[in-house]
Design a protein around this nucleic acid. Structure first.
Length: 209
DNA sequence: AAATAGTCCAACCGCTATCGG
DNA sequence: TCCGATAGCGGTTGGACTATT
């Protein structure tokens, strides 16, 4: 069992002070990102490197978009989650200015609950047999569809393939745009078939049509 | 006004992947 | 090839805040 990286005596934990934030910002502005452990020491922060990295990535980075998620962002998260599962970093990578932590929190606190209310299982995007809430009459009969899309957790190649495919798609479309149509145009691609299948039948996607 | 419940989100923890010696 | 250090990721927690009773 490896030692935890943050068990040093004298290492700060908990909420960051404004002074600590400023030290980290100043240091990264001057020297750029690099080895987080050395950044922490060089910036005079009594924090572990991990903590510095997290603080920078999730809060201090200048390109972070803060505030509520737009409807199109929410739709994109749902689509990507149906495709990629809990790969928050990959999903966040498709949402400019959003972090994996933010997407994960938003999923757990908003979207998940919303889907449950609609009678959709947020884990596999399938309709539950006994939906909760009044909106369930809009959805189609349950079909085992989204699960076909999910790549098994051990099949990392499949996931990364899907992700890289998505990346190519967006690059072609322009990085700043939220390309909500994630259909894939390569003939004979198994992913395309999955996507098309999903388009036809995934209840979570039907809700946004 | 106080107590309690619910919600949100920043931060931590533990694990795996990757890299360099 | 092996091993240790580090980065990165996803799950979880805890505290602050808000709503409800």
């Amino acid at each position: 069992m490896r030692k935890p990286c943050c068990d040093k005596q004298g290492t700060n934990k908990g909420a960051w002070s404004k002074q600590e934030d400023q030290k980290l910002i100043d240091y990264i502005r001057t020297h750029g990102e690099g080895c987080w452990r050395s950044i922490s020491e060089a910036a005079g922060l009594h924090r572990c490197g991990k903590s510095c990295r997290l603080r920078w990535i999730n809060y201090l980075r200048p390109d972070i978009k803060r505030g509520n998620f737009a409807q199109d962002e929410e739709e994109l998260i749902i689509k990507l989650h149906a495709l990629l599962g809990n790969r928050w970093a990959l999903i966040a990578g498709r949402l400019p200015g959003r972090t994996d932590n933010e997407v994960k929190n938003y999923w757990n606190s908003h979207i998940k609950r919303k889907l449950v209310k609609m009678g959709i299982d947020p884990n596999n995007h399938k309709l539950n047999q006994y939906p909760i809430g009044p909106q369930t009459q809009h959805v189609v009969p349950p079909r085992n569809v989204a699960c076909k899309l999910r790549v098994s957790s051990t099949d990392n190649d499949g996931v990364s393939d899907a992700a890289s495919y998505l990346k190519d798609e967006t690059l072609a479309a322009g990085e700043s745009n939220l390309d909500l149509d994630l259909s894939i145009a390569v003939p004979s691609s198994p992913i395309k078939n999955i996507e098309e299948n999903q388009k036809k039948t995934d209840p979570t996607l039907l809700l946004f049509r």
